[in-house]
Design a protein around this nucleic acid. Structure first.
Length: 415
RNA sequence: CGGAGCGUGGUGUAACGGCUAACAUUUCUGUUUUGGGAACAGACGACUCCGGGUUCGAAUCCCGGCGCUCCGACCA
């Protein structure tokens, strides 16, 4: 991709209505655009990152047996009435609308009910279970107060998975598998060291204890108690002697931290299948109840968290795994056009190797190009200039470490 | 939803109730420059959030609305 053709440019100043680091950097660097509070567009750079995050999650969900589907945004009120969740008193952040014909519809807040109905439509036998379906779908939540940029949005893309199992034990087995898959996701997007599986309360979803995945950050809305040795944590909302004992945690080993809820998994028991009368026949022809779980990761929030946590004073520092490009090729042109020729050839060479590259071919001054490069945060920068040409090398600078290397182009190792 | 603050060119700011709403940046032209957001010259760009009101006169004061940010409450 040539930077001269890239839709959106960087800007020096962030709009004053963004205070959070994640939104400020993502907007300045041209990854997202704000439509209104808690509602953001993804621009070309941002969409590449979003898709990479999506691909990682998809891989991990497929690896544990997930099957991808795509549910609708408009939802049938009747289904929600059956589980008692249509009432605004139960879920207070619904967006709802009315069909021209008169019927009320819900605008996707979550999908437990529709997914259960979908499965009910197709699944009648114990032989068809367990089933794990998931989707990447936009959720709408009428938050009283959107906040912290990408952290609490009113419209956001979410991966939500729903598991349907034949027994508590079968459910639990998958639940644990999914928890492990989640940890792999957070590790792969660069948040592994500071993300903890955290015991928490279930809110509007379930009465029992659930698990959240909390990423340490000062801008987080949650307070958790972390056991560094065991790599687990407990949310303040369930921080009591009984729960501590249940999970074998010692107050002395726990440290209080602020954190961002980057993912969560819920044991839902038989609540939704029961309420919606979804059952299957077992080997003996007797109807059996179904055990359900739901598992969510907000993609925008995850992107925002990566920016919030990994960026430095110069800009974003993308982990290799979700960076919009692998290499930022920065050419510092000379008058004779020699550098241009060389840079073009490096550019073509990189593309031929299958390495994604953003080529800064703009006729700008070095300072501006470097500042932009730091802001955008691509892991590896390759500089081609009159200087490097004179030495018969290119300059390689790593965004994260700041390490600089000069070597002939064909000696660069790409991981 | 309670509290606080704020709405002025694309962006960031300024302007006592009083001249043609100023400055920087961005953008465009040209000259020049080329290893960390250069310099000079010129140009474009604003119904000062919306609606009322007070006043000879409103960006400025008053009322109402809408929006944005922050704190709190709330929050898979």
């Amino acid at each position: 991709m040539k930077q001269s053709h890239l839709f959106t440019k960087t800007r020096k100043e962030a709009p004053k209505d963004e205070v959070s680091k994640n939104a400020e950097l993502l907007i300045r660097a041209g990854f997202i655009n704000k439509e209104m509070a808690g509602v953001y567009d993804y621009l070309p750079l941002g969409l590449i990152v979003l898709r990479k995050i999506e691909a990682i999650i998809r891989e991990e969900m497929n690896a544990i047996g997930g099957q991808e589907i795509l549910m609708t945004t408009l939802q049938d009120k009747a289904v929600w009435e059956k589980t008692g969740r249509w009432d605004d008193k139960v879920i207070d952040n619904w967006f709802k609308s009315t069909l021209a014909a008169g019927a009320e519809v819900g605008i996707a807040n979550t999908h437990e009910e529709p997914t259960t109905m979908l499965l009910k439509h197709y699944v009648n036998s114990y032989k068809d279970l367990p089933l794990y379906v998931y989707q990447f779908q936009t959720k709408f939540r009428n938050e009283l107060r959107a906040k912290s940029g990408m952290m609490r949005a009113r419209e956001f893309l979410m991966k939500d998975m729903y598991s349907f199992s034949r027994s508590e034990a079968e459910f639990k087995e998958f639940y644990e598998k999914c928890a492990e898959a989640y940890l792999r996701v957070f590790k792969r997007v660069g948040l592994g060291d500071i993300t903890y599986r955290t015991t928490a309360a279930g809110g509007a979803f379930t009465t029992g204890l659930t698990d959240e995945f909390q990423t340490l950050s000062e801008v987080g809305e949650d307070i958790i108690y972390v056991d560094e040795k065991k790599k687990v944590a407990i949310n303040k909302e369930v921080y009591d002697d009984e729960t501590l004992k249940k999970f074998g945690l010692n107050k002395a080993d726990l440290v209080e931290k602020k954190s961002i809820e980057t993912g969560n998994i819920f044991p839902l028991g038989t609540r939704y299948p029961d309420a919606l009368d979804f059952k299957v026949k077992d080997e003996t022809g007797v109807e059996q109840t179904i055990y359900m779980g739901s598992y969510g990761i907000g993609l925008g929030r995850l992107m925002g968290t990566v920016v919030e946590v990994l960026s430095d004073e110069k800009g974003i520092v993308w982990p290799e795994s979700i960076a919009p490009f692998k290499v930022h090729l920065v050419a510092l042109f000379d008058k004779e056009g020699k550098v241009k020729g060389e840079a073009e050839s490096v550019y073509e060479n990189l593309k031929a190797k299958g390495i994604t590259v953003l080529y800064d071919d703009r006729d700008e001054r070095p300072g501006e190009k470097f500042a932009d490069s730091d802001l955008i945060g691509i892991p590896m920068r390759i500089v081609v200039s009159a200087k490097t040409m004179a030495e018969g090398v290119v300059e390689v600078k790593h965004r994260k470490s700041g390490e600089v290397d000069k070597k002939p182009f064909d000696q660069i190792k790409f991981m």
